[in-house]
């Protein structure tokens, strides 16, 4: 069950600040909805635990997050895969690009995600809406973090 989503968000902070925040596990942890743990295991890898609810399926995902295609301060690709136990799995990635705009930074993202198991079986009709909400929540919080 594949799902794609693109979007952009205008942030007030300068590009360097945005880039730093994008690489700060504490910021990411605060912004990822349902994120309980995000521990850096190397410069480009994290261990993560997050709880997500899609339709009737609520799952606690444990998995890895890694950063690739690092191009400071212009963008990277953040990818992850999570195992939700009997709920199934989710994996996906987002290409994030930063450009200067209107005295701040324009962040554009391109998400591709896949879900499987019970999540796909019971939640597929709801997954696009759920993913959109997760992205909206993330960037709303991230905008607040970059404004700090």
């Amino acid at each position: 069950m594949a799902m794609t989503m693109t979007g952009e968000v205008q942030l007030a902070a300068p590009r360097e600040t945005v880039w730093q925040k994008l690489n700060d596990p504490d910021v990411l942890k605060a912004c990822i909805p349902g994120c309980e743990e995000l521990n850096k295991t190397s410069d480009t890898e994290f261990q993560a635990v997050a709880t997500t609810k899609i339709g009737p399926v609520k799952a606690r995902f444990k998995g890895r997050v890694h950063l690739t295609d690092l191009d400071p301060p212009n963008g990277y690709k953040i990818s992850g895969e999570g195992d939700g136990g009997v709920a199934g799995f989710a994996k996906g990635g987002a290409t994030v690009a930063l450009t200067d705009k209107d005295g701040g930074t324009l962040l554009t993202y391109n998400v591709e995600a896949r879900i499987g198991g019970k999540l796909a079986q019971l939640g597929q009709r709801l997954v696009n809406g759920a993913a959109k909400k997760i992205a909206d929540d993330f960037f709303q919080k991230f905008a607040a973090e970059t404004a700090k």
Partner: peptide, 14 residues
């Protein structure tokens, strides 16, 4: 089934 082999009509809701 989607192309990855996930059954997406897997309940009485679907």
């Amino acid at each position: 089934y989607d192309k990855d082999g996930q059954l997406v009509s897997g309940s009485f809701m679907d």
